[in-house]
């Protein structure tokens, strides 16, 4: 067995910096935030790895899509550094990582939270190749003065329809982080999204 990749060099400060970036991303949906990633076994992206190391621990089961689950290395990396356990059931996941968004399972297969406790839902980390402000989706909602544009690819099938369904059941629903190799953008459930 190979040694597990080292994770954050300075865990306390790196976790703080990563969290602040993710928090800003969630608070201002659609803005693209630079994120210092961390080396991780492929195909887990450096930004997604930094998010995992920042937010996961033994209280947060995580789910991996097929490409991430394939070798077992990614699960081993995340579990080693965070103490979180991998789950095969997306509805059980506090966090889900997806390396191949186009083949992502429907959002409804993840934990949606309840009407009383809508916070008990999955945060979905979608690894995307491209992330840019500009032609693509038009976002509005809390965190946005007016509207904001965001382009990302690749994205899950029927992404806009799924987002609309997700918004329709507010306050229940999943939250999404789009993670490029060195940047992140947030798409909380409160967002209204239209095609660009």
């Amino acid at each position: 067995m190979n040694a597990v990749a080292p994770g954050f060099a300075e865990p306390v400060l790196a976790a703080q910096a990563t969290f602040r970036t993710v928090m800003e991303a969630m608070a201002r949906p659609g803005t693209i935030r630079r994120l210092a990633g961390v080396d991780a076994p492929a195909p887990l992206s450096p930004a997604a790895a930094a998010i995992a190391l920042t937010l996961l621990d033994y209280e947060t089961p995580f789910w991996l899509d097929a490409p991430l689950a394939a070798s077992g290395e990614v699960a081993r990396f995340i579990s080693f550094h965070t103490g979180a356990r991998v789950t095969a059931d997306p509805a059980d996941a506090a966090f889900a990582f997806v390396a191949a968004p186009a083949a992502a399972p429907p959002f409804t297969s993840f934990a949606q939270g309840s009407a009383e406790y809508p916070d008990r839902s999955t945060t979905l980390v979608l690894q995307v190749a491209d992330l840019a402000d500009g032609d693509g989706m038009v976002l509005r909602g809390p965190g946005i003065a007016g509207t904001r544009q965001l382009a990302a690819s690749p994205l899950p099938a029927n992404f806009l329809e799924q987002l609309a369904d997700n918004r329709a059941q507010f306050p229940r629903g999943i939250d999404i982080l789009l993670a490029a190799s060195d940047a992140v953008a947030g798409m909380p459930r409160s967002l209204h999204v239209a095609g660009g």
Binding site: M23, T123, G143, F170
Partner: peptide
């Protein structure tokens, strides 16, 4: 905090 932001 992240969930709080997502559900204002």
């Amino acid at each position: 905090i992240l969930k709080a932001i997502a559900i204002p």
